[in-house]
Write a protein that binds this DNA or RNA. Structure first.
Lengths: 346, 346
DNA sequence: TTGTAGGCGTTATCAA
DNA sequence: TTGATAACGCCTACAA
């Protein structure tokens, strides 16, 4: 039912050789315009469709690459994926997107499963532990590139935003608008192999926070560095609430990433603390959460499109020429100032 | 570089026939355990990987289907896509996800481009006009199913939520908590071929709004039905603002979909109108926006997972047996009550 | 239990 | 300009 009309069928119907049909269907020069048109018409009528499989077998490849993305409602990767698609298309490659849900193992499993998929390389997005993913890639023998700033140890060329520099910009902005009692909220490190505990980007953003304060001559108060549950739907942020109860001096909150902000803002709303007048709030990523919340969030925008483009270029490069170096490729962020830090004066 | 070791290579290295290697790699019974293990070891060492293309050519298909999803930051489709992946996997099918950005034509183009992709059917998500998409499917000769409630005219089996019944539930909820001056906010119909103007689901939701009010004996006030820019990042909703200026009686807002709520809530926050005490707000979809905003949004949850599962089943069915009927397949929504309509009493 | 051979649908080479 | 034919790599009758 699915695929039946072949070159042979068309050639028979047209009373010509199979090769002529092949040439007529492609854009080969060695065919008279007359027969080409005639054959194309017949092929059309017969409903001929070339077999992707046969073509790939003959040509030795599909010219397709895969992008493996985390499967959840937080679709920040879409900008990156779109850039991958455009870049790959320009090079004649198809992009297959594979959303993968779940923890550690699932990612490696997904890559192993790629052996049944006509793909020549893979871009993995957001990898807690690159080692196991690398092993999976080696097992099925395809090159990979990571868009990832989680892993401390890297085994792929790894694209990421410049977390340290970007976070510095955000905190410096808070300092510039006169804030000094700045809370740093990060997700709770809940156990030995927590995906957060070892996150490279969290380390970098916290380091930036500390360095900026020191540089500004502000004493670092460890009590202002708090951990909370990672749950964008939480009704509030109890840890921040406790802190506010104990310390009336807090005048800003820097969320390790935008997703922590909704709960933070709800906590502040519940307590009738005015944002940004009493307390400024900022985040990192500039993902959808940043613009949906009230007030909208000041944050550091990651250049996802550029990151996706570069990832694709590096992957295509490893497909053809010399594989790129396994190192971090960092891209600068852009400070986006929105209502959550914009006082009425400015 | 990419693909070199073949069955022949392995057979030579192992000093056996090519068929034996094939059997050893698969799970054929007709091979002695000893040789099977030996061959597998050798294959492993040589880095043998079966050719997806050759296998597909031989078997006459890839056992893969495509899901085409809208490429924007609003990833409500992920739940559906995930269900597709799981359902397809259970039937031995791979799922290829293709994010497509942009208007009308882009969708049909994307499907046309699928002729170079090893895929046997397509699930299209969110289709403004099914006709052109249908044509594209026919052109490349693959069956399709739509997860879609936009098109008024349908050319695919079309999965959707029960918009009318679901919207009734939401509005009835507002009436039950004592609201009677309920605003209906819908996106602006900005021109002839606006994607909103003809949206089936908008029509259904508005019809439900009207019917519930009538049934409750509430006079329909056309001034309470307003159109606004579709922009989840907008600083406010000026049309609602104007209305509030003119009419102090408004006590609820029903947004045609959740994405309209952030701007509505910002407008209300700017005007210090308390939600939900003064004004209740509700939406439709239960997508990410509903839980990120403050207060969190009462809404009708679409059963995306079930919809994705059904779509896949219907598609697989058209691949094998008789194609399913081209009609709407509607699934009931679930009323989710959250803080935006929950007064302190309840 | 193992080997041989034919064919899946294309494309490219070589003759005609 | 066209036609026959040989791969591409795998699977599976069929034969040994």
């Amino acid at each position: 039912m699915t695929q039946r009309v072949t070159l042979t069928d068309v050639s028979r119907a047209a009373g010509v050789g199979i090769a002529t049909v092949s040439r007529a269907m492609g854009d080969h020069p060695d065919v008279s315009k007359a027969t080409r048109d005639r054959i194309r018409t017949i092929a059309q009528e017969l409903g001929y469709r070339p077999s992707v499989a046969a073509r790939a077998l003959r040509r030795g490849g599909f010219h397709a690459i895969s992008v493996i993305v985390p499967d959840n409602q937080w679709a920040w990767w879409e900008l990156a994926a779109h850039a991958c698609i455009e870049t790959a298309a320009a090079a004649g490659y198809q992009v297959l997107v594979h959303p993968v849900r779940g923890a550690e193992g699932a990612l490696a499993d997904a890559i192993t499963g790629l052996s049944n998929v006509p793909t020549e390389g893979v871009i993995v997005v957001s990898v807690p532990d690159q080692k196991s993913v690398r092993d999976a890639c080696d097992r099925i023998g395809i090159p990979g590139v990571a868009i990832d700033d989680s892993s401390v140890d890297i085994y792929f060329p790894s694209i990421s935003a410049a977390n340290y520099a970007g976070a510095r910009e955000v905190v410096e902005h808070l300092v510039e608008i006169g804030r000094s009692r700045i809370v740093f909220v990060r997700p709770r490190f809940s156990g030995g192999d927590s995906i957060w505990g070892n996150s490279f980007y969290l380390q970098e953003r916290e380091r930036a926070y500390r360095d900026v304060l020191v540089a500004a001559g502000i004493l670092i108060d460890e009590k202002l560095i708090i951990e909370t549950e990672y749950d964008e739907a939480a009704p509030g942020c109890p840890e921040l609430g406790d802190l506010l109860d104990r310390d009336g001096s807090v005048d800003a909150v820097f969320c390790a990433f935008d997703q922590l902000a909704p709960a933070v803002l709800r906590e502040l709303a519940t307590r009738d603390r005015r944002v940004p007048d009493e307390i400024s709030v900022a985040g990192f990523d500039d993902e959808r959460a940043a613009i949906l919340v009230t007030p909208q969030l000041t944050t550091a925008r990651q250049p996802y499109a550029e990151m996706g483009r570069t990832a694709t270029e590096l992957l295509l490069q490893s497909l053809s020429e010399t594989p790129p170096a396994i190192r971090r490729y960092e891209f600068p962020t852009q400070l986006i100032v929105r209502a959550s830090t914009r006082t009425q004066l400015s």
